[in-house]
């Protein structure tokens, strides 16, 4: 991917709020900021975690951050790094709960969304069911739908997956979405569990 340098936070923010290619370039630039990972690993180490825990938490935090930007939850009301730090802190608490369910994090200042051990368990169960369904759509469709969900254009999907034209890529996306729908309908027992909203 072409390397783009943003002069300041305002430019980065503008790109994150801008067109899809700009947003992705801004995300890449943001991801490559070494301060972020340093901050997360230091935070995790100070709380008794390892460097690897820090990397894992960084990864999770970045995934959440990307989703929040993509779905318009980030409105630029705070600095990007502050926002990211908040997500990372939260992800570290989730990570600790997953790793050591008995750890006492009740004293910690938690973000507004309640994430009880029960809820974590329910979310984990949903993920397992979804994974089982997704296996049935095949690897190619998994990758294609993932790129589509990340708002990659048909041209980008064509380039990344080697299709002959944008139209072929679009047809493939349509075909994979239909396949996913079909898989969901073929497993009513899974659908019954998944059809109710579960906030993550």
């Amino acid at each position: 991917m072409k390397k783009v340098f943003f002069q300041n936070d305002a430019e980065l923010l503008a790109a994150l709020m801008g067109s899809e290619p700009d947003r992705r370039r801004a995300l890449q630039h943001f991801f490559e900021n070494p301060r972020l990972l340093q901050w997360v690993t230091r935070h995790v180490r100070m709380q008794g975690g390892s460097d690897q825990d820090g990397k894992d938490v960084f990864e999770e935090a970045f995934i959440v951050f990307e989703r929040q930007v993509r779905t318009g939850h980030f409105r630029g009301e705070s600095s990007l790094e502050t926002w990211f730090h908040g997500i990372a802190r939260w992800q570290w608490l989730v990570f600790q709960r997953k790793k050591r369910p008995t750890v006492d994090v009740e004293q910690a200042v938690l973000p507004s969304v309640e994430q009880t051990p029960e809820k974590i368990l329910i979310l984990e169960e949903r993920r397992v069911i979804l994974q089982q369904l997704l296996v049935q759509v095949g690897e190619r469709c998994q990758k294609l739908l993932g790129l589509f969900q990340l708002n990659h254009s048909m041209r980008e999907i064509r380039e990344m997956l080697g299709y002959s034209s944008d139209q072929v890529a679009a047809n493939e996306v349509h075909s994979c979405r239909e396949k996913l729908k079909k898989v969901i309908h073929q497993h009513p027992e899974s659908f019954d569990v998944l059809k109710y909203r579960a906030e993550s």
């Binding site: 995934i63 989703r67 979804l130 739908l145 993932g146 969900q149 996913l180 998944l194």
Partner: peptide
């Protein structure tokens, strides 16, 4: 309801793609 499940599944796939990209970058 179907859309909700579809969306959640696609989000999981997006997450997997992103995770792979992050690890590749590392």
């Amino acid at each position: 309801q179907v859309h909700r499940v579809e969306w959640e599944a696609q989000e999981m796939l997006a997450e997997n793609v992103l995770r792979a990209q992050i690890r590749q970058t590392f």
